[in-house]
Design a protein around this nucleic acid. Structure first.
Lengths: 276, 276
DNA sequence: CACACAATGAATGTCTGACATATAACGCTG
DNA sequence: CAGCGTTATATGTCAGACATTCATTGTGTG
């Protein structure tokens, strides 16, 4: 694969601005409110510039950027600095680096899953810190999943429902709690997938995960799981029948049924937080 | 502030597993399907372990983790490796590092805005790559903003509407296109904020931004902007009147009106992509 | 006594150069 | 032509040094 040379406008200005130069430059227009951080760290400048190139499309997905040594000389910094910048980009899933000959850093094609994963992680933290309320989570979920169920019903290309049924256990009585949760997750994931809108998946998946994580900490009776299974079956049937109204209603009822359980699990989690 | 010592279970096993050791360990159970990447890079192992500590809550927000030198000895790797791991965590907004005395790496309290920003960036890429369709964007937006308008109307604590009115220009005729876009963005942001669910903001904001970015590339007549303003005013009035049904209807109509414009802008963007 | 200012120390930021390791591509040999 | 070692080219990791920043502490002066 050919080496993509980094498109540096003037070869002179493309480098990193050292602290000294930067200070001299910014003191020219010294109005009262200067930005708080006049010095940008070198690795930040590098990652910023590379990120910009990627976002603007100057570096297309799949493109390979120059090796670290070249980048170092181009930007006028050391290889260590370049590497720190690359790690940042990697963490944002903008590039992927492979070792060995013909290796290097390649611009990644972004994936829905990665976004979802990131949102999930951060939502988890947000909910741990109580910066987001249970009420918001439940409300958002309802706002998303209820229409999703409707859309799934209205658009079901027959055959897609197989995934739905696969996510409903034949003999729920014989499953442990952990397995039940797996099935539940699969089911809701399947519904959202079936609705055909990837963006909804990005939003629903993390919200569901966070709720589920909290719920998993509380102990739930067998009857609970059986009820869930009944609901899921009803929803699946409505979707399979192409009955949008029915799917919407069943899903709404299902979520309403779940609400008190989430609330109690959430409260006990609160005690744990308070204790610490 | 006191130095948080890293909770290492046994002091011996907390380190990084070198390639050699790892290989020896994993060849014990050499079934046919080994995972594709048996060697985890050192900086990944470090960032993984630290991330885990943060996510589980072992390191609470605001906590300060050991300095880089200590981390290096604790993990049994060089400082450079530690730093690369820290950059990854920084990029994910899990920590923040400050220079100088009393500096170090602090666990960040996550913010809604940062999540939104990340989603926006990635959504932009997704749409550039045509991995997400305009139809999905518009549909998701309708699914989110229409209920948001209703909720805003039903929950308006009087006084919150000030932000709404502030986002509607008095004399739209005198504004340039760029300014108009600023107002539009502010208006929709205000509606979502007013609905009181931060999660919706996380989802709506990026979607709106992506759509807007595409729209900004096409040229729009004065009459378009005036119509938008009329719609906004109608929505704001319904919300201020606490009329949930009205707000929902106005918002739906508004989005329906916009649709063809987005579609035409999207098509012309496609030509640009195809040309490249 | 209070306040401005210089010295100190602790931390991150950056550079240099070296060596280790993985992998694709080349070329040799049978 | 197939198989296999070799090599070139990357990234991965280490060690140590020096630069820079910033809170704290100490000092001197009004």
């Amino acid at each position: 694969m050919s080496q993509t040379s980094i498109p540096s406008r003037t070869k002179q200005t493309s480098g990193v601005v050292a602290a000294g130069e930067r200070a001299r430059t910014s003191e020219k227009k010294s109005s009262v409110s200067v930005t708080v951080r006049p010095v940008r760290k070198a690795y930040e400048q590098v990652s910023d510039q590379l990120r910009e190139l990627i976002m603007v499309g100057e570096l297309e997905p799949g493109a390979r950027l120059p090796n670290e040594a070249m980048l170092a000389t181009e930007f006028g910094v050391s290889r260590a600095t370049i590497r720190e910048a690359l790690r940042a980009l990697t963490a944002q899933n903008l590039i992927r680096t492979v070792k060995g000959g013909g290796g290097g850093s390649y611009v990644t094609v972004p994936s829905v899953d990665h976004i979802s994963e990131f949102v999930h992680a951060n939502l988890n933290l947000l909910s741990d810190t109580r910066n987001v309320s249970l009420e918001e989570l439940l409300e958002a979920r309802e706002l998303l999943e209820v229409p999703a169920a409707r859309l799934a019903a209205e658009r079901q290309h027959n055959g897609g429902c197989a995934a739905l049924n696969a996510a409903i256990p034949e003999e729920p009585e014989r499953l442990g709690t952990a397995d039940q949760f797996v099935y539940n997750t699969d089911f809701h994931t399947a519904v959202v997938k079936l609705c055909g809108n990837a963006l909804l998946g990005i939003a629903v998946q993390p919200i569901f995960s966070v709720l589920q994580t909290n719920l998993a900490r509380s102990s739930l009776g067998r009857s609970f799981h059986l009820a869930i299974n009944r609901h899921h079956r009803a929803i699946a049937e409505a979707i399979a029948a192409g009955d949008g109204d029915g799917a919407e209603r069943e899903m709404r009822d299902h979520l309403a049924y779940l609400r008190p359980y989430y609330e109690s699990a959430w409260r006990s989690a609160e005690r744990v937080v308070a204790r610490a």
